[in-house]
Structure formats: C-alpha cells, structure tokens
Design a protein around this nucleic acid. Structure first.
Length: 562
RNA sequence: GCCCUCGUAGCUCAGUUGGAUAGAGCGGCCCCCUCCUAAGGGGCAGGUCGGACGUUCGAAUCGUCUCGAGGGCACCA
C-alpha cells in the first residue's frame, strides 16, 4: 500500500515539474509516507509538501493543494485531504482493504514475504559461544536475535546462512581441559591442587566422568570417544569440546535454533587464512613493527589507538583471527553479513572493521553489520539472580526453557530493543497466566480456531468464498481497525528486516491480537445472516493467518487451542 | 580521564528513521459472561519524555553541554 502511494506522489511531483510549478532540477527530498497516528488523519500521511516548500520557497499548504490536484486517480484512494502545516492525508477506499484480505487468502503462509533481498546471500553469525560451559541467558538473547533476524532475512528474499563460530583451541579451551583433567583425578574446586582459573561448575565433573567411562559423543558430525587416560590432556580436550558442543546443540535445538555452518577458529590457522590476512595487511602498508611486535595502524580508520596484531612472543592477538574469519565470510560470497554480539564486546568492532578496510579487497565500509545487545538482569522472587561462570553459579538457558517454556523464553528475549538492558522476570515468564504477553497473542490464534470448530457444531455453514465476496458487510469501526492492522504486516516485516529490529514485530503482534480480542468481545461471528457471518469469518481467518505468519517469524508456535 | 549504549507513567517497555493531542502491559480503582475459551473486553487515575541550551515550520527523536545507569578502554579472549 505504502509503495503504491509513494508512486502516486512521485508522479504528482513530476507533473508539477512539467508545468514548471516546481523547478525541473529539484533535488528530491527524502519524504515519507507513514501510517497516520490517529484515524482522524486518514490512513496514511505524507510530509512531502512541507519539505518541498522549503526548497521551492513556496507556501506548504498551497503546494500541497497543487500536489493533490496533480495526483493521478487510483482505486486505492477514496479521498485526500490537506491538514495542519501541510500534511497530505490519504483516506483509503474499503476496496483497498478488501483486496488485502484476498491477498492474505491467496498467499497464505507466504503473505508478508517479499523479494526485496533479491536472492542475495547474507551470513548471520550468532551465539558463537566457546565450548567451555553450558549456554546461559545471555546466549539465549543472542540466539533468539540471530534466529529471528535469519527468519526475517529469509522472509524478505535473502539466501540466509546461519553461522556459529567457535574457538576450539585457545587459552580458554586449555583451561577447560585442565579443569576436566583435575576432576578426573578426583580434585575438587576447593582442593589445593585445583587449577587457579579452572571452571568450577558441576558439568565439568560430568564430562570427566564420561571421559573416564570411555563414553562416545557426537558433535558437529564427528564422533569422539573418551580414552579414559587421565594424563592425555589432548584427548581430554577433544572429548571436553565435543561434549560441551553437543550439550549446547541440544539446548539450541530445544530452543528452536539451528545453524548451517559451524566454523572452527582453529581452521583459520590450519587453512592459512590467518597468514593470508596478515600478509594482506602487511602488503598494503598498514602495519609497522615496534617493540618486537607487529602493529596495525587502526587509527587510520577511526580507532583511538593502534593495535598489536602479533605479540612479541610470535602469537596473534585475538582480533587477527576475527579479521581472517570475516575475510573468509566475504570470500564465501556473503554480500551482507550480520554479527550478533554482546555489547561488552563492542570495543573490538572498530579494530575488526579497520582490519577489513585495510585489507583493501573491496569490502564496503559498513560491512559487516553488528547487532549489539545489552546484558540481562534475571529476577526471581523479586531478587536478582547472580550469574558467575567461574564460581559455577549458573542460570542456564536450559533451566529457563524447562521452567518457562520455549515460547515464553523466546518472546521475553526478543520483545525489546536489543540495545536496551532487559530484566528477565522468571516468575512472569513461567506464569501460565494472563500476565504473560506471549499467551495473549497465541490465544487470539486459538480463539479463531475455536470459532471454526464450533461453527458446524452449532449448525452453521462456513463458506469463506462467500465471505470474501461480501467483505463490504464489514462496516463497523472494530472491523476497520482490524483490517488496518492486518494491512500493516508486510510493511512491518520489511522494516524489521531492514532495520535489524525483530522486536517491532513482537510489539505489533500484540496490537494485532488486541484488535482481534476487542472485535471478538464486541460481536458474534456465528450469526444467522450467512453473508455477514461468512464475511466475519473470512476476516478472522485472515487474522489467524497473519498471526500465524508473524508468530512463525519469531519462532513461536501458533496453537489451535490453549 | 576517553569512547559506546541507554535514561519516556509507581514497575517493565514501545514510539513507524524530524510530524499532528507521547502509547501499551503490569500494578491501583470501576464496569462487562443467558453470549463463539473471562488466558478476554471496556473505562478512570497516573508524564516537566533525566536536565539545560541550540538547529527549524515542527524535537521524545538531530547537535552541544550536563547529571545518572551499564559496558568498553592490555602484547587477555
């Protein structure tokens, strides 16, 4: 709808230019067509006259008059008014909304999908947790954000690759290995022989036991068998990594999250990607040697100081493999790339981006996009739940899913802007009651199903085709509000994907559910007048479809009864 | 000290990229089942959009300063 109105306005501007009312060389201002905030202002409002007035030094209202006169006729538009300082308000015809309902029926599950991504490839990297422990709430937020973004990209015509990057060989992994080894030797976290930075959680003991029992684990397509030899640290490391990777995968699966690519940091070294990246940076003259180390001149790209790439002991600092990894994404044809990252890592962005620019291989400046999310405070019983990995006090993602359910956990973690700190109230999330907003949306879906189930029981026929032919019977205010909400869905999917903001979909689904519940409480759908009955049923079935599609984009179920 | 994010109702948060009278949920008070699940609906109360100055037709939104919260500022990852 919005796009069609925009086209009409553009034609009107062109027409005024032809009539020399507006200069032909006018730089087109970035005007907007937006949903009117209140129904008194019609359906859509356009601010173009006010912006043009400034450029053409004309009176905005007079210019609006001329623009309106030049607007081509269109069946969508019932009337156009000028209001306030020069807004052009569009009032859509009932036919415009009825056509939208027919669209929903025609396209079904595909309603709201678009081809704006044009089949280009986007790589979405998320979770990327190192296999040193179970996933916690923060990983959960990361997982839902990445998963919903992936779904949104898919819905807007992108070819999506979901990618999980992890370190299987660094300092943390060595620490994991010695922790498991200590446990396998019967040393407890408070004993004197316990490694200083060892991971203290109970899961370490579980891994140690499985290793000693020579169990086998399957992770990332490989089978690793515990050798049982307490002195073989390398075997312990491989077994521990595989064990924790498998646990994480089980948790993610329970959360409805999956990946196309698992990328190992160690492969960047074994495949020569790190050397390639370093060579690229050195060859382009963006590095220098100082104090026995190799430095990257990141200050050339807006960083506040230069960064060490290769330490004096010959090993690389962590951001070098990061640059190599992103280079690999670029080389694998990811025209767009999104990395979901906790905001505590935001300091690394500048140097990774600087490194990618310094490679000089044509990577655009804004590539990749980083979606940063703030930390989570978990509340239980009115008190903050403290999380400390090292101390072993842990609220795992699995705990949350078990307690609150997949849908509620996902909804709570996606319903807010990523860059606001969020408070996760476990008591609220696990409450199976009307306090819980996710059920409110799902209930709307279930209610439509319930109505359809009851129609034959009450002796009513359901003929949706007849309903679609009588949509003009939907003439109440409640019906108009619902029709309007439904028509917003394609715009919202587009906006949520383009702005990397899945939360706006979550917020809007609540509004759609509210419009439906209000309607439900105001009118009977199952009435004797067949044309009216079927028209109303067609409307609520369309609502059910859009609820289902929207819930699907958030990875939430659409239950038929509750 | 420097950098990033945030600050909107008692609480938790939206606010369509600068638009018209700032919204929702929870909590509080009041009302609605002879009726398709009341896991619902309607209403009332509740605001100096942290503060100040600026930019312009117009600011919660942009800029500068300031206060507050969180995070980042290692040859740690």
């Amino acid at each position: 709808m919005k796009a069609q109105l925009r086209e009409l306005v553009l034609q009107a501007i062109k027409s005024l230019q032809n009539d020399t009312i507006l200069p032909a060389d006018l730089a087109l201002p970035g005007f907007v067509i937006e949903r009117a905030r209140s129904r008194e202002h019609g359906d859509f409002a356009c601010n173009v006259a006010m912006l043009l007035a400034k450029l053409a030094r004309a009176n905005p209202r007079e210019l609006a008059e001329k623009l309106v006169a030049a607007l081509p006729a269109n069946a969508l538009v019932e009337k156009v008014e000028i209001a306030g300082p020069g807004f052009i308000n569009f009032y859509l015809s009932p036919d415009a909304y009825h056509a939208e309902v027919r669209q929903i029926f025609d396209r079904g599950d595909a309603y709201g999908r678009s081809e704006s991504g044009a089949g280009k490839t986007v790589g979405v990297e998320f979770v990327s947790a190192n296999p040193t422990g179970p996933l916690h709430v923060g990983h959960g937020r990361n997982a839902v954000i990445g998963d919903c973004l992936s779904r949104l990209f898919d819905a807007t015509g992108w070819n999506v690759k979901r990618e999980f990057y992890y370190n299987d060989a660094g300092v943390q992994i060595a620490n994991l290995a010695i922790s498991v080894q200590a446990r396998a030797r019967g040393i407890l976290p408070d004993d004197s022989g316990w490694p200083e930075k060892g991971y203290r959680g109970d899961y370490i003991a579980d891994v140690a036991r499985a290793y000693l029992d020579r169990e086998s684990v399957v992770a990332d397509g490989e089978t690793v068998v515990g050798e049982g030899d307490v002195d073989n640290l390398d075997a312990i490391r491989r077994f521990a990594v595989a064990s924790l990777r498998r646990e994480q995968d089980l948790d993610l699966k329970a959360f409805g999250v999956g990946f196309d690519v698992y990328f190992l940091e160690s492969s960047l070294y074994s495949d020569g990607k790190v050397e390639e990246a370093v060579k690229g940076l050195v060859d382009h003259g963006h590095t220098y040697e100082s104090e026995g180390a190799l430095w990257l001149r990141t200050t050339d790209y807006g960083d506040d100081k230069d960064r060490v790439m290769r330490k004096s002991d010959g090993t690389y600092t962590y951001f070098v493999p990061d640059v190599a990894y992103h280079l690999s994404k670029w080389q694998r044809g990811y025209e767009n790339a999104v990395t979901v990252l906790g905001s505590d890592h935001h300091g690394t962005l500048a140097r990774v981006k600087a490194g990618l620019q310094a490679l000089d291989v044509g990577i655009p400046k804004g590539w990749p996009h980083y979606v940063l999310y703030q930390m989570i405070t978990v509340m239980r019983g009115g008190e903050e739940v403290k999380i400390s990995k090292r101390a072993g006090s842990y609220l795992t993602l699995r705990d949350l899913i078990d307690e609150a359910g997949r849908d509620a956990t996902r909804y709570f973690l996606i319903a807010r802007k990523t860059d606001s700190q969020l408070i996760f109230d476990i008591d609220l999330a696990r409450s199976q009651s009307n306090d819980n907003p996710v059920y409110y949306i799902q209930y709307a879906h279930a209610r439509v199903c319930s109505v359809l189930r009851q129609a034959p029981e009450k002796g009513f026929t359901v003929d949706l085709q007849e309903g679609l032919a009588h949509l003009d019977r939907l003439d109440t205010e409640h019906e108009q509000i619902l029709l309007t909400e439904l028509s917003k869905y394609p715009e919202l999917v587009e906006a949520a994907a383009a702005n990397l903001e899945p939360h706006i979909l979550a917020a809007w689904l609540r509004e759609l559910a509210n419009a439906f519940h209000t309607y439900y409480n105001s009118y009977q759908f199952l009435v004797d007048d067949a044309a009216l009955r079927n028209a109303r049923l067609a409307l609520v079935v369309a609502t059910r479809q859009v609820l289902k599609n929207g819930l699907g984009l958030l990875g939430l179920s659409a239950p038929e009864s509750m």
